Amino acid sequence: MAEVVTKGTGKVERTADRAEVQVNFETVGSTRNEAVDQLTRRVASVEPVLERPGVEVRSRQLSVHDNWDGQQRAGSRASQQYTLRVEDLAQLDDLLSALVAAEPTWLNGPQWQLAADAEAIREAQREAVLDARRRAEGYAEALGARLGTLQRLSDGDGETWAAESTPGRAMAAYGGSVGQAPNMDELNLEAQQIVVTVRCTAAWTLLD
């Protein structure tokens, strides 16, 4: 029995309702202990900022190592990197302002996310199957045949990413004076659209 195999794609847009931010603080000292002591003092003012509601510290990563100038040791460096998840986007601007005012070595974000994407994936799956069927019907008509029953369906992985029309934004470390909170209003950090894409491959019988 003849069959036709088609691919279908379903895409659904949702507004991001969660954001992730990465921030790093770095200090140097003549010894490892001195570098760590300076780092401890530097992040002491940062930790209370991370305790606000709607902000979750996903990870704290400490790195301590010696600096080298050729074959000679030239002091030490210590850094602490935070990965933050912001569930309450109303907190995002104030959080970023406070972090930048604390003079991080670098800050990247926000990376936009969906807190729950199951419903969007199901809708995209329906669109993918409909797309595959429309394509199969077109081939059947072109052959002067009728589309029969579905024989096989291969389900691809659901993928989530930022829409190309609204690319993700990254922030560099702020260069103002210590303790000065920058104005974040002009950076346009509104939640962007997330595109959930599902692809499938379907095989259908062709009837005379």
Rank of each mutant, 00 (worst) to 15 (best):
L99C: 00
P104D: 12
R41I: 06
A163Y: 01
S30E: 15
D17P: 05
T83Y: 06
A120I: 02
R58Y: 10
V178F: 04
A116K: 08
R133S: 00
W106A: 08
E103L: 02
D185T: 11
G148H: 09
A140R: 01
A16C: 08
E141P: 07
V28R: 13
D93L: 12
L189T: 05
Q71L: 14
A132S: 07
A142K: 11
G54P: 04
N183K: 10
S165N: 13
W204P: 00
A35M: 00
A101Q: 04
D157W: 00
R122G: 01
A145E: 14
F25M: 11
L189C: 01
N24S: 12
S97Q: 15
E13N: 06
R199M: 08
W204T: 04
E159F: 01
E164F: 05
G10M: 00
D185M: 02
V4M: 03
P182E: 10
G168Q: 13
S154C: 03
V49C: 05
V86W: 04
W161F: 13
L50R: 03
E127P: 01
R18M: 15
V195N: 04
C200V: 06
E164Q: 11
W68P: 04
G144R: 03
S177E: 12
E20I: 09
A19V: 03
Q71D: 15
T160D: 11
A124V: 02
Q113Y: 10
E141H: 03
R85G: 15
A116I: 07
L89Y: 07
A118E: 15
D88L: 09
S76F: 02
R77F: 05
D69I: 02
S97D: 06
W106Y: 11
Q151P: 00
D93T: 11
S45Y: 07
N33R: 12
D17F: 00
G75Y: 00
Q80H: 02
W106G: 12
E3I: 05
E137F: 03
E164P: 02
N188T: 06
G70R: 04
V195A: 01
T160M: 13
L207V: 11
Y139W: 13
A2G: 10
P182W: 02
A115Y: 08
W161H: 14
V55C: 05
V5N: 05
D94C: 02
Q193L: 13
G176N: 06
R146Y: 01
R85P: 08
L153M: 10
S45T: 14
A173K: 09
D157S: 09
